[in-house]
Write a protein that binds this DNA or RNA. Structure first.
Lengths: 340, 340
DNA sequence: GATGAATGTGAGATCGATCTCACATCGCAA
DNA sequence: TTGCGATGTGAGATCGATCTCACATTCATC
């Protein structure tokens, strides 16, 4: 009911100048007399003038908003990144619009499509599919800045910030092997998601480099939710000649494995050793604490935001592809197997 | 580089009509000839026309964006709510802009101030302060729809969706008392946050109703982070004549208590019984599992979104104040004390 | 056949900020 | 004194969608 609409026109009228002059004074460009400028600024202050960003956006074609499209904002990994991005954007007076793809390509397409008409300035994106990416290619080709995080899309010319999934998985499995394990189970995601593929490759490479043959019966696939992972774990450990160790490809899978093993009465690390990809706060609360491959989460968001802001500022350089190393955090969930 | 700017004008030209007629056809209002309408629609389709939402917003004064201002998007409680709100909004073609207050009133003020110039249609807000709310009052008095969640602000005329913090805390403490505990510690937040105050009241009311005197030495105050809660727990249990049970006011505090007690070598529930406010996935992974007061998180977001959408649709009724009941989930962290 | 209602369409204004261009005015140099 | 650059300022156009009006038609009714 109060000051609803203080526009530039009002300020101009109050300062007894034209809208053009008022705009010049407020945005300090062009010639404005010192005294006039002061009068305008004073009037704006007095009336509590705030520029209408929508009107500015209509002229400039761009709202000070950046879109973030994570797989799922409830995933602590993405929540942390969202927070970090938000902090960075705020420094540059930009806002963060979050739209989860829910790991669904169709939804991702629709989201980008609808956000396009909002004149969003740029996107930070965790693409759902490594291959079905025509919609992202188009976005980029229209000149919209895009930064990919967590996952990359093969032939896409844009900045990306990911971690060394293959190396991290390899390190985890290497660690299990160095503790005498050879029958190492893998609990993995459906392959569509980029990170799951890379982590699978790391698992396979590690085994091969140690001369251990791949055994399909040691691999269990499920959707990436705690509930599905529980089932997959139980399936895996119900077979005879079960694995002595398990590697899980993400934190939700790790949690599922924990519950699944507990429900089967299998103890960690006495009956089964466990290493998970992605650290999570729960990992230090269990007994024993869980050995994990940690990602440098705190670096991903800020860097992605920095890249995007640089693009928004007009920086024209070749796409940068950053791949952070992971770090194995040894806790208590891996037992040394009696040597042969 | 492709179809950058297909505007209404282009469609109108392609269909050989005026912009006005094209608009009528596309938005189906006013009189338009059947054949003309078809021609316009066909042209729009062919050109891939998408209305520019910013231009629409300039006229209507409102972007199809709703602001969500949680305390911290990393808190799983708020992350879940954000997700639920987003799903609801999507059904009505609205987007969600998230800006965390980081539990800082000044930041909250700045955020709302800056979002105001964005013509955001409405807000879902978890106010940081129960008293310092002039900025919210002003927002509401300007006619911007606001729905409060998790916390209310006393003299504010707007919808709110919260839980029965007092009752939940009372139930938790009642449960401890019924198990023979009298020296019940409280790990609580700084009092500024509304929920912490109510939960404190529940603790006090329960004790009083059982004729147990309040003992300030049983209460430990800290900021609501795991790290601070660890320290506060250690402080509390380092005193002589320590509590036999502990009630923690939120899930971060509960986690801190868990770590603090473990570092002191105190076992749950043998040495200390524990009940926490707010369920969290970690609670079922510990040994023993933690008894908690659960909030109906899954109902808060959708209801808040529903309320806000109704207001956006123009619904004019008295503010609704919903207070959901909580539910005590008994697990294994409370021991029966030998009767007197 | 005339009158008025129903139907269809376009020109132009509007939302608010910004930018271009034209027009002043002043000072200084030729 | 004339002229030209530097300095200030305002009128009006622009961004894209929508709405109000005014102006045509067509059709039905007396």
């Amino acid at each position: 009911m109060t000051q609803k609409g203080i526009t530039l026109k009002d300020v101009a009228a109050a300062a007894n100048v034209s809208r053009a002059t008022a705009a010049r004074a407020l945005n300090s460009y062009g010639y404005v007399g010192d005294e006039t400028a002061l009068r305008v600024l004073e009037a704006a202050e007095r009336l509590g003038y705030r520029a209408n960003l929508v009107a500015q956006a209509l002229r400039s074609g761009q709202l000070p908003i950046v879109g973030f499209v994570p797989g799922d904002i409830q995933n602590p990994f993405f929540a942390r990144i969202a927070h970090d991005i938000e902090v960075e954007l705020r420094k540059h007076r930009h806002n963060l619009l979050i739209a989860s793809s829910e790991e669904n390509v169709e939804q991702e397409k629709q989201l980008l499509e609808s956000l396009r008409s909002l004149s969003i300035r740029g996107f930070i994106l965790a693409p759902t599919s490594a291959t079905d990416s025509q919609h992202i290619v188009q976005l980029v080709s229209e000149g919209t800045p895009v930064v990919l995080i967590d996952r990359v899309v093969q032939e896409l010319q844009c900045d990306s910030v990911v971690v060394d999934n293959e190396g991290g998985a390899r390190e985890a499995v290497d660690f299990l092997v160095s503790n005498g394990h050879e029958r190492i189970g893998l609990l993995r995601d459906e392959s569509r998601i980029f990170t799951a593929q890379e982590r699978l490759a790391g698992y396979q490479n590690s085994l091969q480099s140690h001369g251990i043959g791949l055994d399909e019966s040691l691999v269990s696939v499920s959707r990436s939710t705690v509930e599905h992972a529980v089932d997959a774990t139980i399936r895996l450990f119900s077979r005879r000649n079960r694995p002595t160790a398990l590697f899980t490809v993400d934190s939700l899978m790790t949690q599922g494995a924990l519950l699944g093993l507990r429900s089967m009465g299998l103890s960690i690390p006495n009956d089964v050793s466990l290493v998970g990809f992605d650290d999570f706060n729960l990992a230090t609360f269990t007994d024993p604490q869980i050995t994990v491959v940690a990602q440098p989460i705190s670096e991903i968001g800020p860097l992605a935001a920095k890249f995007l802001l640089e693009r928004l500022a007009g920086k024209k350089i070749a796409p940068r592809h950053i791949r952070f190393p992971t770090r194995l955090i040894v806790r208590g969930s891996v037992a040394q197997l009696p040597g042969r």
